[in-house]
Design a protein around this nucleic acid. Structure first.
Lengths: 192, 192
DNA sequence: AAAATTTCATAACATACGTCAATCATTTTA
DNA sequence: TAAAATGATTGACGTATGTTATGAAATTTT
């Protein structure tokens, strides 16, 4: 049905034809234009999304109205307001498209039924959750141990070729620094 | 068997007497003195631990030999090198005791058998994992959005009464600032 | 109780990053 | 194509935090 996500999943578990069809049956397809919201603060969050094509960002707006990006998502990434998704709560994050994007959505209730019917998927999503946990912990360690330029270089590895797709001021935002600072870091990196 | 952890678990799921005994049967008890290691970098990590009594810290040593604390654990907290625990890998973290401590350990292989035998525990530990994921994400957002003194005050809420138990230079380390800076922040907070 | 060690506070100075403002290049829109 | 909007860079300057050094207070050890 959706070759991208099938391929993605086959990295973790092997599915029979039947399981694969069962999985496909709960997927929904979503197309969004640049600048369109996938999720807005306050929304109920029933879905998590796999990116087939495009680029999105998830951000929180603080009490001063400033945006803070927690995650980018490009092809083969998952995105949602996971806090709201897991806890069946209202979104505290916003997610919008940096490029026209194509997504596959999975509804939480469908996923939970699927876990019961096909335990393999339970295992798959548990692996994905532990991986996500580990990357967040690595990111915290990275922010404690590394300089801004080291974290910038690390970021470029995490999101390959994203510099060509995302403006630098959004990358700076994700790194927790100002665009002017990133610009200075980049100059130093180039000249070294 | 261990009233503390039974009480802890009852916040999430209700256990029958039989389930409770099955659970107790896989727990091990561990007593450590101040400054003793629970886990050292390079160790195989088969256990995760629940703190009955005491205080511990988990930290990574960077390439310059500097320690960076990722987590404290006091009574009713869980601690391990979760990355190594989940991925069945060698520890990259060290965990040692700030005070004499008493822990309950659960072995990964026992836990996985338990999941199969009593699905309730699968649900319990999945909830704990999502909660942990969410707190890490909140912590990243907090580091992006908040000033150091806001994060210090937030820290004091997360770990109640820990200021009396843990030296300030370790708290500063956890917050990613120098003890001198924390000292300045504390003075400003008091005088306001 | 005395000595040693640990912890905290403070000061002077250095540095990285933020702020504000201006300019220029590029992209988008009219 | 022209105008407008967007994004990147640079400079001057301010501020928060790091660095180094010192001493006092508190705690632990002898």
């Amino acid at each position: 049905m959706y070759p991208e996500i099938e391929k993605h999943i086959s990295k973790y578990v092997t599915l029979t034809l039947e399981e694969s069809e069962r999985f496909s049956s709960i997927l929904i397809h979503k197309k969004l234009r640049k600048r369109q919201y996938l999720i807005q603060e306050g929304d109920a969050v029933q879905y998590e999304y796999y990116v087939i094509k495009g680029c999105l960002k998830a951000f929180e707006v603080d009490h001063l109205g400033n945006e803070h990006i927690v995650q980018f998502a490009i092809e083969d990434w998952w995105i949602s307001d996971f806090k709201a998704f897991f806890k069946e709560d209202k979104a505290s994050l916003n997610i919008d498209c940096i490029e026209d994007s194509e997504l596959i959505g999975i509804k939480k209730s469908d996923l939970e039924q699927l876990y019961l019917d096909v335990p393999k998927f339970d295992r798959l999503f548990r692996i994905k959750l532990t991986n996500a946990f580990v990357s967040l912990q690595d990111r915290i360690l990275s922010s404690l141990e590394k300089t801004s330029s080291e974290r910038y270089l690390e970021f470029l590895k995490t999101y390959p070729n994203i510099e060509q797709r995302v403006p630098n001021y959004l990358i700076a935002n994700y790194l927790g620094i100002k665009p002017e600072s990133l610009s200075r870091l980049r100059r130093q990196i180039i000249s070294s």
